[in-house]
């Protein structure tokens, strides 16, 4: 067991108070934390599922672009935030594990801490059709 860096811990604490779905991932893209608002997207509670390897959670989504064409994993904002270490934005469509198709605005940004330590990234989802 490795203790998370304090920036990741504080990010989780903040996310747990926010109403928009938030994902926090490590530098490899493994899902370290998602808040209660993100649970319908993943179809399970964080308290039960815990951390999720990137293989597992990224296939749940099968994201497509606005015209319905499949999006390669590298085109997703979270992947760009991790690989290029810059913020990224995109509108995507997914079908969550609850079977509901969703159109989402996604904003992702990298987490770089003290001493240029690269800690991972955060994605925030805004459901267009829910509003």
């Amino acid at each position: 067991m490795l203790q998370k860096q304090v920036e990741i811990i504080l990010m989780r604490q903040l996310a747990s108070y926010l109403t928009l779905p938030v994902f926090v991932v490590d530098p490899e893209g493994n899902l370290l934390y998602y808040n209660a608002s993100a649970e319908p997207l993943l179809g399970r509670q964080f308290d039960e599922a815990g951390e999720m390897p990137i293989r597992e959670w990224s296939t749940i989504f099968a994201p497509v672009d606005e015209r319905g064409a499949p999006l390669p994993p590298d085109a997703l904002p979270l992947a760009i935030a991790l690989q290029k270490r810059r913020p990224a934005y995109r509108r995507i469509r997914i079908t969550g594990l609850d079977g509901v198709p969703r159109e989402l605005e996604v904003v992702a940004f990298p987490l770089e801490g003290q001493g240029r330590r690269f800690l991972g990234a955060v994605a925030i989802f805004y459901s267009v059709n829910a509003r």
Binding site: M1, L2, Q3, K4, V6, I9, L10, R12, Q13, L14, S16, Y17
Partner: peptide, 16 residues
């Protein structure tokens, strides 16, 4: 800070 029922598990506890 921000933990409703302190502590969470060790991995998520600052300073552990």
């Amino acid at each position: 800070l921000g933990v409703p029922r302190f502590p969470l598990d060790a991995a998520w506890t600052s300073g552990y």
